[in-house]
Measured scan of single mutants.
Amino acid sequence: AEKTGIVNVSSSLNVREGASTSSKVIGSLSGNTKVTIVGEEGAFYKIEYKGSHSYVAKEYIKDIKDE
């Protein structure tokens, strides 16, 4: 089941290729951006990003809701 969340950062949140802080950064999301969460892996959520799937750190996503 998909969930949505809100990016909870003051500046921007790195979007990564994989579920690791050493993964390549492929983009960023600004605070209060709504994201669609399709899964989770460790400390990361797998999200829909620009037509494919990428990862963001869970600690920076708030207001998780089931869609």
Results as ranks from 00 to 15, higher is better:
E2C: 15
E2N: 15
K3A: 06
K3E: 04
T4A: 07
T4I: 13
T4Q: 10
T4P: 05
G5E: 03
G5T: 03
G5M: 06
I6C: 10
V7C: 05
V7L: 04
N8A: 14
V9F: 07
V9P: 08
V9S: 13
V9D: 06
S11M: 10
S11V: 12
S12E: 12
S12H: 13
S12P: 09
S12C: 15
L13G: 05
N14W: 13
N14Y: 11
N14K: 12
V15L: 06
V15Q: 03
V15K: 00
R16V: 08
R16C: 10
R16F: 15
R16G: 03
R16A: 04
E17D: 14
E17F: 05
E17Q: 08
G18S: 14
A19C: 06
S20R: 04
S20H: 09
T21E: 14
T21D: 14
T21H: 15
S22K: 09
S22W: 07
S23C: 08
K24P: 13
K24I: 07
K24W: 04
V25F: 04
V25W: 05
V25N: 03
V25T: 06
G27L: 02
G27I: 03
S28F: 11
L29S: 01
L29P: 00
S30H: 11
S30D: 12
S30M: 14
N32L: 09
T33L: 07
T33A: 08
K34E: 08
K34W: 08
V35I: 09
V35F: 03
T36G: 04
T36M: 09
I37G: 00
I37Y: 01
I37K: 00
I37D: 00
G39I: 02
E40I: 08
E41C: 12
E41T: 08
G42P: 02
A43E: 14
A43C: 12
A43F: 08
A43D: 15
F44N: 02
F44H: 03
F44I: 01
F44W: 13
F44S: 03
Y45N: 00
Y45R: 00
Y45K: 01
Y45W: 13
K46W: 04
K46H: 04
I47H: 01
I47N: 00
E48A: 11
E48H: 09
E48K: 14
Y49A: 00
Y49D: 02
Y49I: 03
Y49T: 01
K50L: 12
K50N: 13
G51F: 06
S52A: 11
S52W: 07
S52F: 10
H53T: 09
H53Q: 08
H53D: 05
H53M: 08
S54A: 15
S54Q: 07
S54L: 06
S54V: 14
S54P: 04
S54K: 10
Y55R: 00
Y55W: 11
V56P: 00
V56G: 02
V56Q: 00
V56E: 00
V56Y: 00
A57N: 08
A57H: 07
A57V: 07
K58P: 00
K58N: 02
K58R: 07
E59D: 09
E59S: 08
Y60G: 12
Y60C: 15
Y60Q: 06
Y60P: 02
I61Y: 02
I61M: 04
I61C: 03
K62Y: 10
K62F: 10
K62Q: 10
D63W: 11
I64W: 09
I64N: 06
K65T: 14
K65M: 11
K65Y: 12
K65A: 11
D66T: 13
D66H: 12
E67I: 14
